[in-house]
Amino acid sequence: MTFVRTVNGDINPGDMGVTYCHDHIYCVPQLWKEKGDDDLLLDDAEASRAELQLFANAGGRTIYDATAIDYGRDVATVRRIANEIGVQIIATAGFNKSLMWPGTMNDGKRTFNEWIGSLSRKELAEHVTREVTTGMDGTDIRGGVVKFGTGYNTISELEVKTVYAALDAHKETGAPIHAHTELGTMPLEQLDLLHQEGVDPRYLTIAHLDRNPDPWVHRKVAETGAFFSFDGITRVKYYPENVRTRCILDLVRAGHEDQIMIGGDIARKTMFASYGKGGLGMGFILEKWRPRFVEEAGEAGFDGEKLLEKFFVANPQRAFAFSQ
């Protein structure tokens, strides 16, 4: 029997409902705190709770919270405010990326670089596995996804170690895998590591590929069977919104509509509607982007509503299911 692991236990994939495939809810990344970057500190539980209410009001049911230990994860707070709203949360075991690792760990004694560097591959894999099977951060809340990340056009030695640890934990637990890419770079190199380790890419979701709207790269990733997390919606500083839609519809034309998911990756106070900074908020995708996509898809000859049912409902049911 397949299942999806949430912060409140395992559920049937069919109970997920409308799902965002990548977001952040409440987190205080230590590196950004040390640098004094307040915009990147999602540290107001009531504001974050209000955002979850916006998501729920728009028809949302489940969120994959992609916040790992090195990005200021606080699973207890997230579970509490999510339960108050009635939103299901899938939490993250594993790691984000080496950019965050100069930050100090919660014990205040070591940086993540020092900690990760001190552990063997086996020890690091055992840590990630425990996060999935036992609990995270001293709680009984278990991770529903194992995550790794890589840098901008590079994969550091320590990042490779965390990739292996996440893949080993996947082999041990059957947990789905999530990969951070920095501005959509290095996805093919990540897939090379999966191939090297004998891991089926169909258990992998790759984030932020819409930051790199390269049709050739997208085609090569799609051919492996991996899932796409299109999660840069509203970031017109990179390119107009229609570019992302074209990327999505190109994949649909090539027969890959069953590999596409949608999320917001909201990780700044200025992106939330409830932090007093004027952001669009967690309801925007379902309330505003969704009808726009339906219209543009229709103009291109597609049934946009049918596609979005796959992107928001059917595809997450497979992407976030345990493999054993």
Results as ranks from 00 to 15, higher is better:
residue 1 M to Q: 11
residue 5 R to F: 08
residue 12 N to W: 05
residue 14 G to V: 11
residue 17 G to P: 15
residue 20 Y to P: 05
residue 25 I to F: 14
residue 31 L to G: 07
residue 31 L to F: 06
residue 49 R to T: 06
residue 50 A to G: 10
residue 51 E to M: 10
residue 56 A to P: 02
residue 56 A to V: 04
residue 57 N to F: 08
residue 60 G to M: 03
residue 64 Y to S: 00
residue 67 T to A: 05
residue 73 R to G: 02
residue 80 R to S: 12
residue 82 A to V: 02
residue 84 E to K: 03
residue 86 G to L: 04
residue 94 G to Q: 00
residue 108 G to W: 02
residue 110 R to C: 04
residue 120 S to R: 00
residue 121 R to L: 14
residue 123 E to L: 06
residue 125 A to Q: 00
residue 131 E to Q: 13
residue 131 E to H: 00
residue 133 T to L: 10
residue 137 D to Y: 11
residue 140 D to V: 05
residue 141 I to D: 14
residue 144 G to I: 02
residue 151 G to R: 08
residue 153 N to T: 11
residue 158 L to G: 11
residue 160 V to M: 10
residue 160 V to A: 06
residue 165 A to M: 11
residue 165 A to F: 09
residue 175 A to M: 08
residue 175 A to P: 03
residue 179 A to Y: 03
residue 179 A to D: 06
residue 190 Q to W: 14
residue 193 L to E: 03
residue 195 H to E: 15
residue 203 Y to S: 06
residue 204 L to P: 05
residue 207 A to Q: 01
residue 222 A to T: 07
residue 225 G to T: 08
residue 225 G to N: 10
residue 241 E to L: 13
residue 244 R to W: 11
residue 244 R to C: 09
residue 245 T to I: 15
residue 245 T to R: 08
residue 258 D to I: 08
residue 260 I to Q: 09
residue 268 R to M: 00
residue 274 S to F: 01
residue 275 Y to A: 05
residue 276 G to F: 12
residue 279 G to Q: 02
residue 280 L to Y: 13
residue 285 I to V: 12
residue 292 R to E: 15
residue 293 F to Y: 02
residue 294 V to F: 01
residue 299 E to P: 01
residue 302 F to P: 07
residue 312 F to Y: 15
residue 312 F to A: 12
residue 318 R to E: 13
residue 318 R to K: 15
